[in-house]
Amino acid sequence: MDGQDVLGVREASDEAVKRVRSGSGPVFVEAMTYRFRGHSVADAQAYRSRDEIGAWRENNDPLGNLRNLAMAEGIMEESDFVEMDREARAVVDEAVEFAENSPEPPPEALFDHVYAD
């Protein structure tokens, strides 16, 4: 199935869980999706083109698709998403700031938490 379709994945998962709970055996859901970023910062992504990634981002981003749907259905407005983006950005910025402004751990921290107290 289309793994980029958020509601479709939800529906299929609901159906799969129902079938499993009803005792009719295991279900395999194959949701085809696309990775927008490389495996890590070391991944130059030589195995695919920028155009290919761009086309997927542009036309088939699960979040973008859901956003468009929510607006088309009148459930949410553009300004709601702007506010959500702002909040998300603030959370990340705050975390980055906290990390960058934190002191280096002292040498003895090397031995902390190897075992739980």
């Binding site: 751990p105 040498p107 090397l110």
Partner: peptide
Amino acid sequence: GHDVPAPYNANLEDLQ
């Protein structure tokens, strides 16, 4: 190596 998992922090990893 000290008997701890490799720390992510650079200074601590150099100590390990």
